[in-house]
Simulated scan of single mutants.
Amino acid sequence: MANIHPTAVVDPKAKLHDSVIVGPYAVIGPDVTIGADTVVDAHVVISGVTTIGERNRFYSFGSIGCDPQDKKYKGEPTRLVIGNGNAFFQNVTVSTGTVQDESLTSIGDDNWIMAYVHIAHDCRIGSGTIFANNVTLAGHVYVDDFAFLGGFTTVHQFCKIGAYAMSAFTAAISQDVPPFVVAAGNRAKPAGVHSEGMRRHGFTAEQIAQVKKAYRVLYRQSLSLDESLAALDELAASSADVARFAGFIRTSERGFIR
């Protein structure tokens, strides 16, 4: 049997692996599934149609699987799916999805989500990301793998944050942030390549140099967008990272920071 503190309230319909630990005064709803070796600390509330994988840690006072903060929400059984090995620190809130999107909020594996972060309805978070304290995502935001969002970053609804991108402290993001790019300011503007993050994730000096060259093409050479994309296509022929960068620019629906 799961190790459940006697003051916790766990609905008998909830599905908890035998190795799950539930702390004092936690509340777990009937449509919740929690995988092996997950720890739910004191006063955490896990509700909604929420599926949680293995080896996750939920620190005190989090609200996971809560109703979307969307006036159109009418109690539909939308979902939250969380992968493996994530840490959710104190007072984190994560909403389920809405039927206006795909009825799903999803979070991948090995994410580090610090205190007071809010992840709104229909967000899609990849794996290996870091969200510093007080990051706030509006609805329908996509954050790709290994992105780093600095403290107090705010992200407008429907924005996309590319892989290995970074936001500086208090960045206010209202357009897409391409992969590898640092976003800074209110409203956020491009502020260079996240080269230190790339090094930490094993990118070679040559790979970083190619991404920096692509950044200069897009942001430093006063080219039109069509001219920039043509130049990026030439670089992408010999660099998968530049191809990812150029592909993101081409598919940006909201427009990217400039």
Rank of each mutant, 00 (worst) to 15 (best):
I4C: 03
H5D: 12
P6K: 10
P6Q: 15
A8T: 13
P12T: 12
P12H: 10
K13D: 08
A14H: 03
A14Q: 02
K15N: 14
L16R: 00
L16Y: 01
L16P: 00
H17R: 06
D18P: 07
D18N: 06
S19Y: 04
V20K: 01
I21S: 09
I21Q: 06
V22I: 08
V22M: 04
G23N: 09
G23M: 09
P24I: 09
A26Y: 01
V27W: 00
I28N: 01
I28R: 00
G29E: 07
G29W: 02
V32S: 02
V32T: 02
V32H: 02
G35T: 08
A36L: 03
T38N: 08
V39F: 10
V39T: 09
V40E: 10
V40G: 06
V40Q: 06
V40F: 09
D41F: 07
A42R: 12
S47N: 14
S47C: 10
G48E: 07
G48N: 03
G48L: 14
T50C: 12
T50L: 07
T51E: 14
I52S: 05
G53S: 08
E54H: 15
R55N: 12
R57E: 05
S60A: 14
F61N: 12
G62V: 03
G62D: 03
S63I: 03
I64Q: 03
G65D: 04
G65Q: 01
C66L: 08
D67T: 12
D67I: 10
P68L: 05
P68V: 15
Q69G: 03
Q69H: 04
K72R: 15
Y73I: 14
Y73F: 13
K74Y: 05
K74D: 12
T78E: 05
T78C: 13
R79N: 15
R79V: 08
L80I: 13
I82H: 04
G83F: 02
G83K: 02
N84G: 11
N86E: 13
A87Y: 13
A87E: 12
Q90N: 11
Q90R: 11
V92D: 00
T93C: 09
T93D: 01
V94W: 00
S95I: 00
S95H: 08
S95C: 11
S95A: 03
T96I: 15
